[in-house]
Design a protein around this nucleic acid. Sequence first.
DNA 1: AATCATAGTGGAACCGGTTCCAATCAAGTG
DNA 2: CACTTGATTGGAACCGGTTCCACTATGATT
Lengths: 332, 332
Amino acid sequence: MKNTIADIAHKAGVAKSTVSRFLNGGSVSHATRRKIEQVIQETGYIPNSFAQSLKAKKTSMIGTIMPRLDSFSASQTVAGMDEELREHGYQLLIINASQDLSREIEALYDLARQKISGIILFATQVTETHLAAIKEIGIPVLLLGQQHKDVHSMIYNDYAAGYDMGRYVLSKGHRNIAYIGVTEKDVAVGVKRKEGFLKAVSEHVGVEVNLDLYESGFKMSDGVQTALTILQSNRTLPTAVVCATDNIALGVMKAAHMKGIQIPSEISVTGFGGYDVTEVIHPGLTTVKYGYFQAGHLAAQHIIKLVNDEPADLLTVMNCEMIHRESVDNLN
Amino acid sequence: MKNTIADIAHKAGVAKSTVSRFLNGGSVSHATRRKIEQVIQETGYIPNSFAQSLKAKKTSMIGTIMPRLDSFSASQTVAGMDEELREHGYQLLIINASQDLSREIEALYDLARQKISGIILFATQVTETHLAAIKEIGIPVLLLGQQHKDVHSMIYNDYAAGYDMGRYVLSKGHRNIAYIGVTEKDVAVGVKRKEGFLKAVSEHVGVEVNLDLYESGFKMSDGVQTALTILQSNRTLPTAVVCATDNIALGVMKAAHMKGIQIPSEISVTGFGGYDVTEVIHPGLTTVKYGYFQAGHLAAQHIIKLVNDEPADLLTVMNCEMIHRESVDNLN
DNA sequence: AATCATAGTGGAACCGGTTCCAATCAAGTG
DNA sequence: CACTTGATTGGAACCGGTTCCACTATGATT
């Protein structure tokens, strides 16, 4: 019951090469075609994909390395990628780096050994080691979420998102604002969003704006902590808390609720991300929606181009969309 | 720059077999060991894993087939599996079946062709076709979430969860209850939870309980729809709505909010699942928490046993834990 | 000194496919 | 009818590893 191509050939009374040709659409006479078909039918023969890949020196697999699996953005994006890749006959191999940069590197080499055709790397930071690995493995790599001049990259327009959010909050009359950011090691989330936001503030001439900057971790519980220090300080409370991620914003909302502070009447809150939950909670969270699913599709299309040596933009910037909900009060 | 084992052997002035022995810990003299080490160092040689697997006739990969990636339970479980598998030197290959049963079957054969060592199947339904495929591919398969007498299975104690929830809601004095279930094709979620709940109700002698059963889809929007039909009917509103999943419960809460109905003072709501969001929303959702992450670990351990032909329980039942929050009013 | 393990090594076969090349054979051409 | 053409087909080499087997030294044992 081993069923190799040689067995099939033998049972059908032909040579290996003929069976192979049959399988790959070469020229085979009608008679032998039928015989082989029948034998394959009977035996339930399935070609060994190693032997195939060994000869072909590549696979039809695309690898993706993600810092975590259990996040809304990650799973949405991956779902989109998967859909697109499947349509093009590629299989997606997902590797979880558990937010450990050295595991990302490891994964790059791992994927190279497996002769993966291309790699989509969900980046939070792009270090020298990353670049060295990417260069060494000689496989097309697409950065998702961060950019680097030497690597194909796909990013969201975080600067614009931050800017839009800033303009919006200011337009609602808020002049005493707390901004909760994240580590600047994450250029997209930690730097760009903040810069865009600051830009909006700096452009807002005529009235004085009091802006306090805080830094928090990515987890909701981090958001709760940071929010509590803000809410418990002796200074006047800000009228709005702008958070660099929806997760942090959810944490802030929780903290406010714990403190009996009403949203938005006593304090306004905003996020970034557009997670599904932000819609169903009350009040709904004003946020910036990122098209994760669509981004996955785009990323897949992009890596397929790279794999096939087709031309592709070095940098793709995707736009975001502001979602206005009830968590921001109008002070005007 | 092809770097095969033959190249290394040539450069080091030894035979292929010696290099192979060096790589796999055979007996190699100190001198040649050093030479080979150096050549490998210089060339950055990485063995071709196809050739290895071709000979070995298997991989150190475990495949998992999931109906969807973008769900809390799925991503949590997968994260747990991944952690455990990695520790044991296995790699996880994730396949997304997009809630399409025929794709699940396809995936089973796909994984078989790739000589995956074992498969963890996130099941919602186990059809005859599934069983036939599982039998045919001859690879260890572990069902997760559903059980079948012929296949190793791992399930949550949904019956007990439903029962506990029933007892709890009744103990809070609710006598007019709406139960929103899902399709009975999903035995675990659609049948077991409901049965457990009904059992609790049937045991509750002495007072009359008015129970209405509804069926909804799995999506939050389905929950909203179903809730609206309940809330808009002319009959007296139930005092509690018990939902078969957290997602549906979130939908119900949203619908209630849209209708200006207060939770829990006007209507109580419960879910199943223990999603993270159920904690941060207000009011917090009373639900049953499933240990997804831990389940992932367990599943991984289980499939590893199967792969190594070690004995393993045919059926593993995992317990759940009720989480009491504010979404249920005490009518006593 | 003769005998015997034994560590170290090279050669060749093998895993299961794909592909190049040469051979065959029937139909078409002048 | 000899010759060209093109469709089929089988044989052998190859992809890049692993492993069995035979052969050499080398040191240990009587």
